[in-house]
Design a protein around this nucleic acid. Structure first.
Lengths: 255, 255
DNA sequence: CGCAACATTGAACGGTATCAAGTATGGTGG
DNA sequence: CCACCATACTTGATACCGTTCAATGTTGCG
């Protein structure tokens, strides 16, 4: 699974990842150092590899350094629902860390680099350093806020608004995570996967996509997405980025 | 808003509540004492009162000691989606504590007793006591797990399965929270509120309820619900209580 | 008692699923 | 380099679940 390119990729991505991590968690340097010291070396996964497996014992925290991943729940009848999409900088399983086993499978949507931090190393930090526990709690909270937003559009919007909203959210998060402009980005999702995210059928994803295309709101081919009219897309989605910007937490100790 | 009955209610409910809290958070006695010492006195709310208001500055942690409450998101067009239902013993806003303002309004579904813990008192504890941060993190994780389950049935099940699942979940949580048998309990929700939870129309809630009644699965009148055939209801809902039982976290320090 | 909120019922409409078929697209082995 | 295959995407026809609108019955509360 490893080849030269992967190693190069890892080495090139890690510094950028670590600085994003610092920005995001707002940890004191000593804590961040302790966290990184507790980690294994970065690993590489290809599309479809599982980074976390449903029902397995939680073995540690997993940080996504590069690429994208999705948390999947599978039904008895074989249908699936994607309950989360992760981008570089996200923790994949902060919310499951305190439980015996994970409730979802998380699989790589693209070739990815991830950083596992085994529980044995992490537990002493969790037991002693309130700031590190706080960072994990913060990430869990952010994840919960995102999920809540998904619940709202799953429950109350039609397919078009759901899709538009998802694209807006992803654009915003990628921008935040990579620092790039968010008007065009790689969308490594098949229409089938989009269907599993939005809770609609694959066929209908296709139709809604074409509708958005015909209205000159987006351009999408070969997994490359362009947002042609962001303002109008935001309107269709009723997308309010505030729930994402407010992720920036209060400073420690600040009122 | 206060009368004698309320005070009696508060006094009668608090000991039971505190013991539930202890069981749930698995905090060392010293930490639990510190938490309770930081709290205001218990307060009382009537149906419809807001315990937390969307957009307002977060002023502290709110524990629900008695009654039920719902977290509500409101749209521009006036429609609402209920994104969470809380029962006695739940923390209402653990996941929002680190942010500047709350994203949801939380309103009392019944006459309720709640315990506010102001941020000024809480912040020193959060800064210093890893065990307390851990408890808050744990509660946020539990909340996120519940939400994820809702996302799954919002995305992929029909109205009947959604309703059945919600009833199963609530029954289970009430049983867990109150210790009572869960085969019959008060369901202080109008069909309209159920619709806002399930993401379907009020009219359809009515029809689905009647279907469940005609199949001898439930009995519901005057806000009192009886589960007549729990096994079959579980089957219809594809309800797997494990995602709720697994909330019981690992012991501190245990591997 | 009378009003307001809640529950129930029917009819027509609409969004989305499902089924089925056909068309790109990309990767693989010969 | 091409033939082939698998996967992804596209399109149309039909059925169903759930919405909406509207009317009526019921309950509870001031």
């Amino acid at each position: 699974m490893w080849d030269l390119d992967d190693k190069v990729l890892v080495q090139r991505e890690m510094p950028a990842f670590l600085s994003r991590l610092a920005r995001r968690l707002a940890l004191p340097p000593s804590d961040q150092d302790a966290l990184v010291a507790a980690a294994f070396t970065p690993r590489h996964a290809v599309k479809g590899d599982f980074l976390v497996q449903e029902g397995r014992k939680t073995t540690g925290l997993v940080l996504l350094c590069h690429g994208m991943a999705a948390a999947i729940r599978t039904f008895a009848n074989g249908t699936e629902q994607i309950v989360a999409v992760f981008v570089a900088g996200d923790m994949l399983n902060a919310g499951e860390l305190l439980y015996r086993q994970s409730r979802t499978s998380i699989s790589a949507l693209t070739s990815s680099v991830y950083l596992p931090i085994p529980l044995e190393q992490l537990e002493p930090l969790i037991a002693e350093r309130a700031t590190i526990v706080r960072a994990l709690w913060l990430e869990t909270s952010a994840q919960a806020a995102l999920q809540q937003e998904w619940m709202v559009w799953l429950g109350r919007r039609d397919a078009q608004a759901r899709l538009a909203h998802f694209l807006c959210e992803l654009s915003y998060r990628l921008q935040d995570s990579s620092g790039e402009a968010g008007d065009a980005f790689d969308l490594p999702l098949t229409q089938h996967e989009l269907a599993d995210i939005l809770g609609i059928s694959t066929v209908h994803v296709n139709r809604v996509l074409q509708n958005l295309r015909s209205r000159q709101l987006i351009e999408l081919s070969r997994n490359r997405l362009k947002l042609l009219d962001k303002a109008e897309l935001y309107r269709v989605a009723e997308f309010d980025e505030e729930y994402l910007t407010s992720f920036k937490p209060k400073e420690l100790g600040a009122n």
